[in-house]
């Protein structure tokens, strides 16, 4: 009786994930190999098209930029937050959680108001006499990167605050009582111990940027097409479902490969598990 209890309780969730996720997603991937033109024809078509290659490289480029910027900003901010006195720390965590729980549409919309042709940034620069006519800021790669950094910095801060707080205070004290300067302690104790957390944060931000839709759609438009917006366009505008499935398969493979790779790296690097 008790032997089956575990499976009985876990089976509804297992069935949900298998029926509504594993099977439909596998079916999407399988159809890319069973086209009449041959098993890899859709992939030759994808990588053979200059436009689609550009979109793929642009997506990788934007995601890498967003990840790098978020890592630096997130880590330095999390370091300060984790050492702030209790009341201030609570306020700062609230200020980071609030945007995180606010939807992606609202957060991207905010940048539409700021970066628009008649937006706040342009009108401020015009009023100050710094520019003669409004800048084209929307529908540029820069706009997409800024809005995505905005999207992911809270996630990075919260992930890293958790990691930095779990570093035992004794280690920091030992380092300084042995004569290390604060900067040396930071570089030689805090930073190496935070590496596994930095990796987790980097994976979350990279995969999130790589597969995003709303932000590139609103701030990049047709000019800065990314994998997500290209996939939507192929599926719902040109109704080329084979092409859309190919993009989906490429996204799945890259996402899972990165998560698996980073997991392996994190396990090797984590000094606590050696």
């Amino acid at each position: 009786m008790k032997r089956f209890a575990g499976w009985t309780l876990a089976s509804p969730a297992t069935i949900l994930v298998v029926v509504f996720l594993v099977l439909p997603v596998l079916a999407t991937i399988v159809t890319t190999f069973t086209t009449p033109a041959g098993p890899f024809a859709t992939y030759f078509a994808f990588f053979g098209s200059g436009f689609r290659r550009t979109v793929l490289f642009r997506t990788i480029q934007v995601s890498l930029a967003v990840t790098a910027i978020s890592l630096v900003i997130g880590f330095l901010t999390a370091y300060v937050v984790s050492r702030a006195p209790g009341w201030l720390k609570s306020i700062l965590i609230i200020a980071a959680v609030f945007p995180l729980l606010t939807g992606v549409v609202v957060r991207s919309f905010a940048w539409l108001i700021i970066l628009g042709k008649n937006g706040i940034l342009n009108s401020t620069l015009l009023n100050l006499g710094l520019i003669a006519e409004p800048f084209q800021m929307l529908y540029t790669q820069g706009a997409v990167i800024v809005a995505m950094v905005y999207l992911f910095v809270p996630l990075m801060i919260l992930t890293l605050v958790g990691v930095l707080e779990s570093i035992p205070d004794d280690l920091i004290q030992a380092s300084s009582s042995l004569g290390a300067k604060p900067s040396a302690t930071f570089m030689q104790v805090t930073l190496p111990l935070a590496v596994p957390g930095l990796i987790v944060g980097a994976v979350l931000v990279f995969t999130g940027s790589f597969t995003s839709y709303a932000t590139p759609q609103l701030l990049g438009g047709e000019q800065v097409m990314m994998m997500g917006t290209l996939m939507y366009q192929q599926a719902m505008v040109t109704f080329d479902w084979v092409a859309a499935s190919t993009i989906a398969a490429v996204m799945v493979v890259i996402t899972i490969a990165i998560v698996a790779l980073m997991n392996a790296v994190a396990r090797r690097l984590n000094p606590m598990t050696v």
Partner: peptide
Amino acid sequence: LFILPVLVPELVLGFSLLK
């Protein structure tokens, strides 16, 4: 299996459910 919904890109899941 239970964290797959976070691992698989949501766009891919949405498209696969539609198709």
